[in-house]
């Protein structure tokens, strides 16, 4: 039975606690937050016995095997090292650290102690993403990727509580991150591209700006529109888009090889196979994009399970 602890009892900690409790052979033995009330409330919500406001005390008394760090990113590196010093494996919520130097240092430190760390890139392990990985590994793309497109959008409307907190507080911790708002959000979308890059030092060209919507609210400090081109030693290219304004607010990844392509639509838990060969559309094939009356509507959905990814083939004209 693995003993698990959580440091940082904010909003995301609830998701961690709920999911940990669904995993067999483990138990949340303690939670910790500098704000004692936050820790106590999390304990009450999830019936956890150990409630602490000091990390060292928690590590010493509860002696967890694994610690989830769900604090603001500024503290990830130091807290993770402290947990490693106490012999704990560490799951660090995204963004993993403030920068690469910290990331490398943390990973190397864990390795010297024969302990493991991971980053909270959980989007990479949703059903559709796993299916996409499996197809790519089986050679569906026909080669390594030629081109990728990753969309990771976030609706930053004035009505969202996150936006209100961020826009209303000039000292908000998100503003103090090296990459501001982007830093706290884009790692999921970047990780999708990173998975398929072969070089360790890709070329990056970035362009970002505050959206007109934010500017109209008097906010010109936060960049909420980002476009990036990433090049992998001239072998593959990728576009990354983050937008708070475009609709639909996509969470999508498109990857194209020399034979075929795949579109992963996270919001709809859908993986679409794009066949590379050009051929005529037959009467019983799917053509969701065509307006021709001769084509039948999408019918080849393979819904193996509710809430799991749907894979279907979209023929191209």
């Amino acid at each position: 039975m693995l003993k698990v602890a959580i440091i940082g009892c904010g909003k995301i900690a609830d998701s961690h606690a709920a999911q940990i409790q669904r995993v067999k052979a483990c138990e949340i033995v303690a939670v910790c937050d500098r704000e004692e009330l936050m820790a106590r409330q999390l304990c009450e919500r999830f019936q956890i016995k150990g409630c602490f406001s000091d990390v060292k005390t928690m590590l010493t008394e509860a002696q967890p095997n694994v610690v989830h760090i769900t604090t603001p990113p500024q503290s990830h590196h130091s807290l993770a090292k402290l947990c490693l010093d106490h012999g704990c494996h560490v799951y660090v919520e995204k963004p993993f650290t403030l920068n690469t130097m910290e990331a490398v240092d943390l990973i190397e430190y864990a390795e010297t102690k024969w302990l493991k760390v991971t980053a909270g890139h959980d989007d990479q392990f949703r059903h559709g993403a796993r299916k996409m990985r499996e197809l790519a590994a089986k050679g569906y793309l026909g080669s390594g990727p030629v081109h990728m497109e990753s969309y990771y959008c976030y609706e930053l409307g004035q009505t969202s509580s996150y936006a209100r907190a961020l826009l209303g507080d000039k000292e908000h911790w998100v503003r103090r991150l090296p990459g501001g708002l982007l830093h706290n959000i884009i790692s999921h979308g970047i990780a999708r591209i990173a998975e398929f890059l072969t070089t360790d030092s890709p070329e990056v060209i970035a362009y970002g700006f505050p959206s007109p919507a934010l500017r109209s609210m008097g906010e010109d400090e936060i960049i909420d529109e980002l476009r990036v081109i990433i090049s992998d030693s001239e072998a593959a290219t990728a576009y990354f888009t983050f937008s708070s304004q475009m609709r639909p607010s996509l969470h999508q990844f498109r990857i194209f090889g020399q034979s075929n392509g795949l579109i992963l639509d996270q919001d709809n838990e859908t993986l679409i196979k794009l066949r590379g060969s050009r051929r005529k559309v037959s009467s019983n094939s799917l053509s969701a994009l065509s307006t021709s009356p001769n084509n039948t509507p999408p019918i080849r959905f393979k819904t193996s399970a509710l809430f799991s990814a749907t894979t279907f083939t979209l023929n191209q004209e």
């Binding site: 963004p95 990331a103 490398v104 991971t118 982007l182 970047i190 990173a194």
Partner: peptide, 23 residues
């Protein structure tokens, strides 16, 4: 091996560093 290769975590971080530096 952990589910996310360390190389991938570092590469993600490296790309993000470069983006923020350029911005």
């Amino acid at each position: 091996a952990p589910p996310i290769p360390y190389r991938e975590i570092i590469l993600t971080s490296r790309i993000m560093d470069e983006i923020f530096s350029q911005l």
